[in-house]
């Protein structure tokens, strides 16, 4: 087994594009679920809104890339309002119902033939991100190595911009959550009626929370498609949402830096395990194939089995995340 290769992959993943993208997405979900208690089970829809806000502007309207970025935000705002206005006056579970349904519906609709002229259908959209890469100070095709890390210049440029965005947005979340705005959100999460009795417009705060977290989710979507260089509807499937949930709960909800920690832990674990599995000796592989049907095809599926089991067990035993205090858990008296 080539441990050197496995560790190089694992370390490079730890600060790699997936970590940035999923940490950004989880940061948005943290505002929804962690701070406000909103059950957003369709977070991937916000990523799709960001991606298509950019993609449709460039592909269909032939606007330039930078206007597209603005449209990404507009799309996420529209989506948040559509999802939030009917549901946020109701019990928490209704938002869950609508978001999980909406995210799948949006994927199916966007990839349909009817919308193909606008969204590119199942094939999607590509060649929209050139203006971004034109600004790169790195040689896009060259490999850059430092320490255990090794990235293509193209990815390195995405990483520099991605991490900058991630850290700035995390600081922003930290700031607003320390302010009275965040205090009101936490109060609404704990008990909406109490907050309303004290003059807080719970509905308005929840809408704001959905907008803010959704916009950050859209940023994650934009970073993802710019990094990949293409937008494909099927990339925005429900497993993305649940991976984001897993990351948020690993890191511990309602803490500003936990999405980054959760994303690093999740991705390095997954990449490590997958690489170890792929490098097993042929005999071991064969016996695994015989006993548990492990094949090249379903190694990737193993990931989501782990996500599902992890989410179930974490929500049951450590809803405060793996770093959270036991004290806080004991306070969960509802």
């Amino acid at each position: 087994m080539d441990w050197g290769f496995i560790f190089e992959r694992t370390f490079s993943t730890m600060i790699g594009p997936e970590v940035v993208i999923y940490a950004l997405a989880a940061l948005g979900l943290n505002i929804h679920f962690g701070y406000t208690g909103l059950l957003n089970f369709g977070h991937v829809a916000f990523m799709a809104a960001g991606a298509y806000g950019l993609g449709v502007s460039v592909y269909y309207f032939h606007w330039n890339f930078w206007i597209g970025l603005g449209m990404a935000m507009v799309y996420s705002i529209v989506l948040a309002l559509i999802l939030g206005i009917p549901t946020l006056r109701l019990r928490a579970d209704y938002l869950g119902l609508v978001t999980i349904a909406a995210s799948e519906t949006i994927r199916i609709t966007v990839r349909s033939r009817v919308f193909k002229p606008i969204t590119g259908g199942a094939e999607g959209i590509s060649e929209f991100s050139k203006p971004f890469y034109d600004l790169s100070p790195f040689d896009l095709g060259r490999f850059y190595s430092f320490g255990p890390f090794r990235y293509l210049g193209r990815d390195l440029w995405v990483l520099v911009v991605g991490w900058t965005l991630l850290i700035l947005l995390t600081l922003m979340v930290q700031q607003v959550m320390r302010a009275p705005w965040g205090r009101a959100l936490r109060a609404i999460r704990e008990d909406e009626d109490a907050a309303r009795s004290l003059g807080k417009n719970a509905y308005a705060f929840k809408i704001q929370s959905l907008l803010f977290g959704g916009a950050i989710g859209a940023v994650a979507g934009v970073v993802q498609v710019v990094q990949k260089g293409s937008i494909q509807a099927d990339g925005f499937n429900p497993t993305i949402t649940f991976t984001i949930w897993m990351i948020l709960i690993i890191g511990g909800p309602a803490r500003p830096w936990s999405p980054i920690a959760g994303s690093m832990i999740y991705w390095s674990l997954i990449i490590f395990v997958e690489n170890v599995l792929r490098q097993l000796s042929p005999q071991t592989r064969e016996s695994l194939e015989r006993t548990i049907k492990l094949s090249d095809i379903n190694i990737g599926q193993m990931r989501y089995i782990i996500v599902g089991l992890g989410l179930l067990l974490l929500a049951r035993y450590r809803p405060q995340g793996i770093f959270g205090s036991r004290e806080e858990m004991a306070l969960d008296d509802r």
């Binding site: 059950l39 928490a92 579970d93 089991l309 992890g310 179930l312 929500a315 049951r316």
Partner: peptide, 8 residues
């Protein structure tokens, strides 16, 4: 948390 469990 139970709803997150069902999602898991």
């Amino acid at each position: 948390a139970q709803m997150v469990m069902t999602i898991g």
